[in-house]
Design a protein around this nucleic acid. Structure first.
Lengths: 206, 206
DNA sequence: AAAATTATCTTGACGATGTAAAGATAGTGC
DNA sequence: GCACTATCTTTACATCGTCAAGATAATTTT
């Protein structure tokens, strides 16, 4: 049966043995799986099924589940940074407004992709020693330091960095986890304004 | 073999059929399992093994894995609040100092029991509709609101609550996840002072 | 005290999962 | 055309959560 050349191959490659770009397809499938099942319900076999491939196919590209989640986490960090940049574009070009906007982007990402946010910030499943993931995470940290430094003038103090990061991260984590329900219930414009206020607050000298 | 009365029963109840207080023993075992394996590696059979009991024994007391993790999360919230109260005891009785101390306790709990912290704040595995867990979580929220209100005078604004909670939570989450390494590397006294400063900062009017 | 009932725990089974090993298929270089 | 490598499938196994049935102990009832 399989020794014959595919009869319908010319018409339509129904299920070709070689996928073409399975690696990318698996990352896409993994994101869908993560969104559906959450970090704790994530299944490697589920990803394979979504990609229309045998359950052991992912191993060749990612090694194991951790490998796939590591690649997905790196992609997650890149999108995380991208969301912050997009939000900064909407704000005025003053350093303080840019910093506040990056905080707003931080929260927006967490609300738009809660599972991905949890994967990159509250999970042990990805391998954070991985170089690609490391680089992606450090790029996010770099953006933060850059914004704080630009706002404060001199090289950012550790107090300032910790205060700003913690405030933005806390807001993002609590909101995306469904806590702070009073804030979640606010109209978006009002909520955004409040987030900007709170991030700015983190910078004011005590 | 089992129809006979246990020969060594009088000397030492080696493995009595009935445990005595298996429910409590399982929660204790669950905490050990959680600390060892993390939220994502947590295994119900592993808990049973730790408690020296068959793999299906937990079902009778907790229904399923989620039931056990729900009970553990409730216990976690109670300890979380207790840690905050303990830390408040060490501080001066002024409202602001008390508020800052509760934030420090928040962080201390996250650093002392990272897995438990993650279970109660960054996991979908416990059932947060459960009454016992709900009550324990609301007690924690109540303490926060109480402290903010006492410090600000009038009933706390949503801005104040969100700012303080987010700051403390962000610090706790980032530090217990091993981020903010510069802060983790600081001597404890210095780090504590910094945490107090940052929490106070969250209250200063913009 | 004896019997019946209930609570507690064990055993055995099933499907789902992650991973390893071996085989099948397709593309690549010579 | 042929060897070689990359890619994917199939098979197998250990572990996990959960269910059902049975065994054992405690409690209640009579």
């Amino acid at each position: 049966m399989h020794s014959q050349s595919h009869p319908d191959k010319a018409i339509e490659p129904s299920t070709p043995y070689h996928h073409g770009d399975l690696r990318a397809a698996l990352i896409k499938a993994a994101e869908a799986e993560l969104t559906d099942k959450g970090v704790e319900g994530f299944s490697l076999r589920g990803c394979a099924k979504r990609a229309g491939v045998s359950h052991a196919a992912p191993a060749h590209h990612f090694g194991d589940t951790r490998g796939l989640l590591t690649a997905l986490a790196a992609e997650g960090f890149r999108r995380f940074v991208a969301t912050q940049y997009e939000t900064m574009t909407e704000a005025e070009p003053h350093p303080q407004a840019q910093l506040a906007a990056s905080g707003l982007g931080y929260v927006r990402f967490a609300l738009a992709r809660p599972a991905l946010f949890r994967l990159i910030f509250s999970s042990d499943r990805p391998n954070f020693d991985n170089e690609e993931l490391c680089n992606a995470a450090e790029a996010a940290y770099g953006l933060l330091v850059e914004n704080v430094t630009a706002t404060c003038g001199a090289p950012a103090t550790i107090d300032d960095i910790a205060a700003v990061w913690s405030t933005a991260h806390g807001l993002a984590d609590l909101l995306s986890a469904g806590r702070l329900k009073d804030v979640l219930a606010m109209p978006e414009a009002e909520r955004d304004a409040m987030i900007l206020r709170i991030v700015i607050r983190a910078l004011s000298p005590a």
